[in-house]
Simulated scan of single mutants.
Amino acid sequence: MALSVKPKLCKGCGICVYFCPKSVLDLDDMGKIYVKDPDKCVVCGQCELRCPDYAVKVTKEEDAGRDTK
């Protein structure tokens, strides 16, 4: 799982923070997005889907050593 944010794109609306079910995201003192605790992210993608500024990106990574047969 990879959660990344681009604070420069964030306008501080807080929509991603509101819709995050695990409170992984927050806004800093400047009103920019940041990740509080990436280990709590459940990769639901709600933050990315709702961000009007494209400041949040969620990707699910497959286990490299997993057998796919």
Rank of each mutant, 00 (worst) to 15 (best):
residue 1 M to C: 04
residue 1 M to T: 05
residue 3 L to E: 08
residue 4 S to R: 15
residue 4 S to Y: 02
residue 5 V to M: 08
residue 7 P to C: 05
residue 8 K to I: 09
residue 11 K to H: 13
residue 11 K to V: 14
residue 12 G to S: 06
residue 12 G to C: 06
residue 13 C to Y: 04
residue 14 G to M: 05
residue 14 G to P: 09
residue 18 Y to K: 03
residue 19 F to S: 11
residue 19 F to T: 10
residue 19 F to Q: 12
residue 19 F to R: 05
residue 19 F to I: 15
residue 19 F to A: 13
residue 20 C to Y: 02
residue 21 P to Y: 02
residue 22 K to L: 01
residue 23 S to Y: 12
residue 24 V to S: 09
residue 25 L to C: 02
residue 26 D to M: 03
residue 28 D to Q: 04
residue 28 D to A: 02
residue 29 D to C: 00
residue 30 M to C: 13
residue 30 M to G: 12
residue 30 M to R: 15
residue 31 G to W: 07
residue 31 G to N: 08
residue 32 K to Q: 09
residue 32 K to V: 06
residue 33 I to G: 06
residue 34 Y to L: 02
residue 35 V to R: 06
residue 35 V to S: 07
residue 35 V to A: 09
residue 35 V to I: 15
residue 35 V to F: 03
residue 35 V to C: 00
residue 35 V to N: 01
residue 36 K to C: 10
residue 37 D to T: 08
residue 37 D to H: 05
residue 38 P to D: 08
residue 38 P to M: 05
residue 39 D to P: 06
residue 41 C to D: 06
residue 43 V to L: 11
residue 43 V to D: 12
residue 45 G to F: 02
residue 45 G to S: 01
residue 47 C to K: 00
residue 48 E to F: 09
residue 49 L to T: 06
residue 51 C to A: 08
residue 52 P to Q: 06
residue 54 Y to G: 11
residue 54 Y to C: 08
residue 54 Y to L: 07
residue 54 Y to W: 10
residue 54 Y to I: 10
residue 55 A to C: 10
residue 56 V to Y: 05
residue 56 V to N: 01
residue 58 V to P: 00
residue 58 V to I: 00
residue 59 T to E: 14
residue 59 T to P: 08
residue 60 K to T: 13
residue 60 K to L: 13
residue 61 E to W: 07
residue 61 E to G: 03
residue 62 E to D: 12
residue 62 E to G: 05
residue 62 E to C: 10
residue 63 D to I: 05
residue 64 A to T: 07
residue 64 A to M: 07
residue 66 R to G: 04
residue 67 D to C: 01
residue 67 D to N: 13
residue 68 T to P: 14
residue 69 K to E: 11
residue 69 K to H: 12
residue 69 K to N: 14
